[in-house]
Design a protein around this nucleic acid. Structure first.
Length: 499
RNA sequence: GGGGUUGUAGGGUAGCUUGGUCUAUCCUUCGGCGUUCGGGACGCCGAGACCUGAGUUCAAAUCUCAGCAACCCCA
């Protein structure tokens, strides 16, 4: 028996995150990676339920001020090519449809890598007057990018299956910038509900969205010490409006270009939930996005003193609890399967169910049941008549607790330095030290705006520049200093190894 | 972008060098029956695969070429 337990593989998240990640996707039934096309994967029912709960949160946030639409997947070549900067950023990764049946198409059709060039020609038609503004729409669709680097489920895909893109148009730059702030607030709320910690930065000039005035990004830290971009927000200004000739008639009768923004989130947000909260036993889902929030495991044939009808009373108690939870709007599941209890525990732990309730003969004697939280090993006894209340309370506690833990983990890996290391005496040693820090997480340091300095630093440390911190500089921290490379005046930036 | 390795049941392997009685094996794979059931049960019976296509050949899992896919290394 002892040996059996030892041979059961427990996944080591810390040691080999990459292996852990693909193992979890399979065992928790999130994605089937066996589809025979590179970079595209199949959502299992369970994974898709998580996806839908996650995107449900996003939808409810967006629906306040945005309207959902759906634009075509095809973008004609001439439209896609209109915006010079924009296409430069994407042309190497566009999939093309060049044939209909055996007939060569007059104009090749691109599969959208993103939808600016599909949507903005229609904006031109939709927008006539200042009364049409602001215009705020979004869609959740698939998008295609011919990724040449190694693809990774949910993270680097040739088919992004769940691309949420919002596009807005406004009368002025000030209104557009206001929208950027709103989008940042919206994304904060979204990731907070997923219990995902983040840093928000303005991407450096050389790394902004092609065609944007500037780009703001949300990055989170993955368990292997690299950051992953999980959301972006772009101020487009008038550049697309000029290209696609999107004008409105102002109050005074003059024609003006609109000011635009766009912002996107992909299924990377699901990847971050899996990667950040999961542990050696599998997923740990925040209750808000758990397809099953509570699993009830009946312990039926336990003690010998229980006669045949003892089993029946356990079943009755389980069904009663299940019904009550359902009525209270909690996503509960009663695991009546033939497996032994232990096998059920492992299965539902793998699937990340936040709370397990065990009910057996022993519990019934005291009219109670046992609660087992997924996020910590504590067990507790709860009287049967208080189950619904306690479940609600516990789920809320779990939601908060895993969020706090994740935020703490992120904070702990951010390394701050004010020093101009390149100019320092023992700069070689210090650089090596920084490189070690970069293995584990994010570094906050001073760097000027020039691309040359940025790239030199990127090479020296083996990192990417995430950008200047926006909106939330920490208290008591110097926000200005000397650029680590050229010693000119510089702002604080985050750098890290990235996905 | 360049180079290398690999592709056998749901998963993991062996077989390939030297073509033929090549199918086989293991598992937290699947199904049936029975005994079990408070942390991954056990027994018996059964099921399931040679990546795709072309070529060589009397004969291909095995050799050749192409495609598709995966992994690794270098840029």
């Amino acid at each position: 028996m002892q040996q059996k337990t030892e041979t059961k593989m427990v996944l080591q998240k810390e040691d080999n995150f990459s292996e852990w990640y693909s193992e979890i996707l399979k065992r928790a039934e999130i994605l089937d990676i066996r589809y025979p096309v590179k970079g595209v994967y199949v959502w299992y029912p369970y994974g898709y339920k998580i996806r839908n709960l996650v995107y449900g949160i996003l939808r409810s946030l967006l629906d306040n001020e945005h309207e959902e639409v759906q634009f075509p997947l095809f973008i004609p070549k001439d439209e896609l090519m209109k915006e010079k900067e924009h296409i430069k950023g994407f042309e190497d990764e566009v999939f093309w449809v060049t044939k209909g049946g055996s007939t060569e198409l007059d104009i090749p059709l691109a599969l959208r890598p993103t939808s600016e060039t599909a949507i903005y020609p229609v904006f031109k038609v939709w927008i006539r007057s200042h009364r049409d503004l602001p215009l705020r729409i979004y869609q959740i669709v698939n998008a295609f990018r011919y990724e040449t680097k190694h693809t990774r489920p949910l993270i680097r895909l040739r088919e992004i299956t769940s691309f949420k893109e919002a596009h807005t148009a406004h009368v002025s730059r000030a209104d557009a910038e206001e929208q950027v702030k709103k989008a940042v607030a919206l994304y904060k709320s979204f990731f907070d509900q997923l219990a995902i910690p983040y840093v928000i930065t303005q991407r450096p000039e050389w790394d902004k969205f092609p065609g944007a005035v500037y780009s703001i990004a949300f990055d989170t830290l993955m368990p292997d010490g690299r950051t992953m971009q999980i959301g972006t927000i772009h101020l487009l200004g008038e550049s697309f409006a000029r290209t696609f000739d999107i004008k409105y008639e102002d109050k005074d009768g003059s024609l003006k270009f609109v000011n635009q923004t766009c912002y996107g989130i992909s299924e990377r947000c699901v990847a971050s939930v899996i990667a950040i909260h999961g542990d050696d036993h599998g997923l740990v889902l925040p209750p808000k996005v758990a397809p099953v929030q509570v699993v009830i495991v009946p312990i039926v044939f336990s003690s010998k003193e229980e006669s045949n009808n003892g089993g029946t009373s356990v079943e009755k108690a389980c069904v009663a609890v299940y019904d009550e939870l359902k009525r209270a709007g909690i996503r509960a599941f009663l695991d009546n399967s033939e497996d032994r209890p232990g096998a059920k525990y492992y299965r539902w732990e793998m699937k990340g169910v936040p709370l397990r309730i065990e009910i057996g003969p022993r519990d019934l004697k005291t009219n109670s049941c046992e609660f087992v939280r997924r996020d910590n090993p504590k067990k507790m006894h709860v009287p049967l008549n208080e189950v619904v209340l306690e479940v609600k309370r516990t789920l809320e506690e779990i939601q908060v607790s895993i969020h706090e833990e994740a935020k703490e983990a992120l904070r702990n890996t951010i390394y701050h330095t004010d020093e101009n290391i390149k100019g320092a005496e023992n700069s070689e040693e210090k650089m090596a030290e920084l490189r070690r820090k970069a293995e584990r997480g994010i570094i906050s340091l001073f760097l000027c705006d020039s691309e040359r300095c940025g790239q030199e630093l990127e090479e020296l440390l083996g990192v990417s520049v995430l950008g200047k911190e926006v909106y939330e500089t920490e208290e008591g921290e110097r926000s200005e200093g000397e650029c680590m490379i050229c010693s000119r005046k510089a702002k604080r930036v985050y750098v890290a190894r990235t996905y």
